[in-house]
């Protein structure tokens, strides 16, 4: 059986909000090391890979592997019934067809319980090889979100160029064009505002901004984001969690 407790329901609410726009139904695999999810969006442009290590829970127990087949929007609907600071417990018996969620407000002596029906989901998995990326950029998650939001007013696509001078975001549409360039920098006072670039060769890739905007909804999970890119390959975008990560693999536009 699975029994996993979080001190604040907001932790799971934020994670679900960061992935729900891209995913419909998917399996969450639970074992003694934690919870994991890998799922493709239906257009096969973004893959979401979530890892929640058992250390990230205040209590965690999973004696044997459990697969939770869930509709992510149904999970989001139920989580809306939890207050952000409620203690949240996930529970599922072996071979059960439901996930039990309890939301507990210890001060108000309130306990709410919801049973979410589980499904058998025949899911496709992608084999992602270990890759050395040509460019790795660590930057503020909020700054990335803001930059992409600004450029989405111009075009449906953004081009990202990374070289030793920095990282440049640009877009061009009917009304004109725009770009934002960030140089590598170290901000001693606010470390999350630093921009760190590791590069083996310069890279330029273009991406759909609507999908990118959905990905950056994970900005509430982490102050920084790690972008990894290699020419002609999907990008890897990672938001670190206290024990785990939300990672996206994002297919670029195909250049001629």
């Amino acid at each position: 059986m699975l029994e996993a407790k979080l001190d604040a329901a907001s932790q799971l609410k934020k994670i679900v909000e960061a992935i729900r726009d891209m995913l419909g139904e998917c399996n969450i695999e639970c074992n003694e090391t934690g919870l994991a999810l890998q799922s493709l969006d239906k257009s096969h442009i973004v893959l979401v890979s979530l890892l929640l290590g058992s250390d990230g829970f205040s209590e965690y127990r999973c004696d044997r592997g459990v697969t939770l087949g869930l509709n992510i929007n149904s999970l989001a609907t139920v989580l809306r019934c939890a207050n952000n600071d409620d203690i949240l417990t996930l529970r599922s018996e072996d071979r059960a067809n439901e996930l039990i969620l309890t939301f507990e407000d210890s001060k108000a002596d309130r306990i709410s319980e919801f049973n979410l029906r589980l499904m058998d989901i025949d899911q496709e998995y992608l084999a992602i090889p270990e890759t050395e990326y040509a460019a790795t950029v660590v930057m503020s998650a909020a700054v990335l979100q803001r930059t992409l939001r600004d450029l989405s007013a111009l075009s449906e696509a953004v081009t990202i160029e990374i070289d030793k001078e920095g990282i440049r975001f640009s877009a061009e549409g009917d009304l004109g064009k725009g770009s934002t360039h960030f140089k590598p920098c170290v901000d001693m006072e606010n470390a999350e505002n630093s921009i760190n670039i590791t590069l083996s060769e310069p890279v330029s890739l273009s991406f759909n901004l609507q999908y990118f905007s959905n990905i950056t909804k994970a900005s509430s999970l982490s102050s920084t984001v790690t972008l990894q890119m290699t020419a002609g390959m999907p990008a890897q975008i990672e938001y670190k969690l206290p024990s785990g990560h939300v990672r996206y693999y994002f297919a670029p536009k195909i250049e001629d």
Binding site: L40, S43, H44, I45, V46, L47, E124, Y125, L126, A127, I128, P129, E156, A157, S206, N208, M233, P234, Y249, A251, P252, K253, I254, E255, D256
Partner: peptide, 14 residues
Amino acid sequence: VAPQGRLTDFFKVS
């Protein structure tokens, strides 16, 4: 406008 790539063009489905 450049066509959109698919992850299944890059990675194997298992």
